[in-house]
Design a binder for these strands. Structure first.
Lengths: 223, 223
DNA sequence: TCAAAAGTGTTTGCTATACACCCATGA
DNA sequence: TCATGGGTGTATAGCAAACACTTTTGA
């Protein structure tokens, strides 16, 4: 073991960030996981994350880790909370600040990161066993996502800059796990005053083309 | 300076908890503050809190600090979030996990704590200048309180075990800063299915006695 | 002309709001 | 008997949910 050169008068815990990264792929809500290459939990799947550097803000740390793992930046990133049970990491006291991130399906060539084979997307209803207390963190992230879905504009974070109303509806249906009425949904979405038609259309397949929408510039999220 | 005997291979930040303690006194929403006796911000008012001990959970730490400062335990305590800007404490890197606590007006002989003169209650609309980034933390706690007020049962946390509907209504009016309609409020409160009449009454003053209510046993909060 | 998804209104029930008077008590 | 806060109901408007057919396109 190398020498321990960072010394303090009182004991200090280690601090990490872990990021719950959601996206929608293949019509399912998916979670990004990393295969651990070292002990503890070697070989198990875990949330991407890492130690907070002394000079960086914790949200910067989360953004940096996310960029390193997925290659994407400037995505939706929100703090979920701090997890600090004394024995959650068997090595030493580690407190983690969990974040949750939403990224659009298309933005991700992902796994691009440093080590390819070690990262993968898992459907939320088919998660492997997770390291540490990550299952609990993921559970709370899922709850938060569901709660915010109908009361904010986070659903748009899963979509490209331009999208159809059907695209948006599918995001809701996938996350909520149930179908919604097309007419009511469209009324609701337009009544939000958060999206506007671009004037363009998307043609695909032998049917009527769909109008494209974008987020209005003046959209802000709610706590 | 004493010798620094806790050493690590990589730099570790210090971790504290800070608690935003709200109560209602004198018909106003009040916040508990502690006068700092040491640098930095010596003499300034700050949130109660302290360093996380290595063996305790962070929520235990918050509960412990709260008990030390106010003498109360088993009160509503919820995590608010982590604050970790690199320079928020000029001494060293300190990441704080903020909590918010609600305590009933009567429960507090407070200031009972270790050092009496150094703690005091301040009305939320007349706060002194605060140390560190505590003003920001308080602001977000206030927002959270307002948001949860109508969608959960936290308002009850400000009341004694037995209370009248007028007591409850006053809590809402004080926090929201505006009067509400008595009939609508009572309909709403009873429709919650969270409170039940005790059968007892409170007599005070020359008017009809008020029915006393208590929280039903099966009440749970919403995220 | 057919298949496939886009697009569009009305009815109904529920929830939120506005609003004013009688009741029980102690002095 | 009077002053004080406790307690109660109804009418209206806005929002959420149920529900089915026409339109446009490409093959």
């Amino acid at each position: 073991m190398t020498d321990k050169k960072y010394c303090y008068e009182y004991p200090h815990p280690a601090v990490t960030t872990d990021i719950v990264v959601f996206t929608i792929r293949e019509g399912r809500l998916k979670l990004l996981l990393i295969k651990r290459k070292i002990s503890p939990y070697k070989g198990k799947w875990a949330l991407p994350g890492g130690f907070v550097a002394l000079h960086e803000d914790i949200s910067q740390c989360a953004a940096r880790e996310l960029a390193e793992e997925t290659g994407v930046s400037s995505v939706f990133l929100e703090q979920l909370g701090a997890y600090g049970a004394p024995k959650r990491d068997p090595r030493e006291r580690v407190i983690t600040i969990a974040y949750f991130a939403l990224i659009p399906s298309e933005k991700i060539q992902v796994q691009a990161a440093t080590d390819a084979a070690a990262a993968d997307w898992f459907a939320m209803d088919a998660l492997p066993e997770l390291a540490f207390d990550h299952a609990e963190i993921v559970e709370q992230a899922k709850t938060r996502l569901l709660n915010k879905l109908g009361h904010s504009t986070i659903a748009f974070q899963f979509l490209a800059d331009e999208f159809t109303l059907t695209d948006l509806q599918k995001v809701f249906e996938i996350i909520q796990g149930e179908e919604v009425d097309k007419r009511n949904f469209r009324k609701w979405a337009l009544a939000l005053n958060s999206i506007e038609a671009t004037g363009k259309e998307r043609r695909e397949g032998q049917h009527r083309p769909a109008k494209l929408y974008r987020l209005s510039s003046t959209v802000q999220d709610i706590d």
